[in-house]
Design a protein around this nucleic acid. Structure first.
Lengths: 182, 182
DNA sequence: TTCACCTGTTGCAAATACTAAACATATTCC
DNA sequence: GGAATATGTTTAGTATTTGCAACAGGTGAA
């Protein structure tokens, strides 16, 4: 049911050859605190746990990474897509979090005239997408195309690229990239 | 300094379009608890935080993954190599944790006669190593070799493989594999 | 306006995490 | 053997989190 913090901490402490008192001293807590936590007879505060983990040292994310993976939601209603940017270009992401995922899928909406900027984007991975509505000017390396509904693109993200909404109406795009870069 | 749990939680709750009371109801805590946490005026227990995150839902590891990455240690004394298995085959790992790493480096020590088992190992990734001392029998697919000091191996881990220490002395090996499988 | 309902914040009481010190049990050293 | 040190556990008291309920501001409908 609940996370077995106690055994996890004890195991971690053991593998680092620390006694409860030694770790307590480094962490700035008392040995009894550690004893109680390890025996799962207290529900530690995040602050206390963090101080203790700093004494090992290890981060909170690392500490909880051992948790059995929470079963992932597989379906998302339109309203559930989390909005990432709220400017002229808005991104709605499929999935709550990219944590542990190797793919990012977005519904992008470019307001008329919006632009990813003069300096082209360059990063690792690959990306592609399909235009749903509006007209999108895509520049990759020195090649420039204007894509309309149904048109698509796909390229290696290390090639300098830029997106721009041309024409009078907003432009909607479904895109995917890997690895996630947001 | 400390982790800004409050703002992180508030942001998360907002992006999921939940009110404090709505989230509290789902999580089985009171709205005041959430209010206090979000204003950083309390140091929540791990249990409370977990219940709240379950209401979003999101895992503890995900929640803390946003933390600025703790600067990684780059050098490890021989005693600091964490011992993974303590049986006839012992593994000493370079680095505290595999969290966020794509490579695992081990110093392995096989006691005389020790063996990874009759059923061969099969997993994703690739692995390789160099024998330091003793004699190691390595089987990959149907090929079997006996390696001595200075000899080495490298193969795709999906190919069935097995290690066995032959001869009267213990066998030491330095190995690396990706992705980490322990 | 006034009512109803939503939002987040805030006292007060009860539950509990944390500290300090004592306790119990091994192990080492002389 | 016996003292000294180290280990993890437990007890009593203090500090803090948590739940309950009241409070204050905001929005929309009648």
């Amino acid at each position: 049911m609940s996370v077995d913090i106690g055994n996890r901490l004890r195991h971690l402490r053991m593998t680092h050859n620390l006694s409860q008192r030694e770790l307590a001293k480094r962490a700035g807590v008392t040995n009894s605190t550690i004893s109680l936590i390890e025996s799962n007879s207290s529900n530690p505060s995040v602050g206390a746990l963090k101080r203790i983990l700093d004494g090992i040292p290890i981060g909170l994310a690392e500490f909880f990474a051992f948790e059995p993976e929470r079963p992932r939601k597989a379906f998302y209603a339109a309203e559930e897509l989390v909005e990432i940017g709220k400017g002229a270009i808005s991104y709605r992401q499929v999935g709550d979090s990219l944590f542990g995922r190797s793919l990012q899928i977005l519904k992008e909406c470019y307001q008329p005239g919006s632009d990813t900027g003069k300096v082209p984007l360059v990063h690792e991975g690959e990306e592609g997408g399909i235009v749903l509505s509006g007209r999108l000017e895509v520049t990759v390396d020195d090649e420039r195309r204007i894509l309309g509904p149904g048109d698509a693109y796909y390229f290696e993200s290390r090639r300098p690229h830029r997106f721009r909404c041309v024409g009078p109406v907003a432009c909607e795009v479904i895109s995917a990239c890997t690895p996630p870069t947001f």
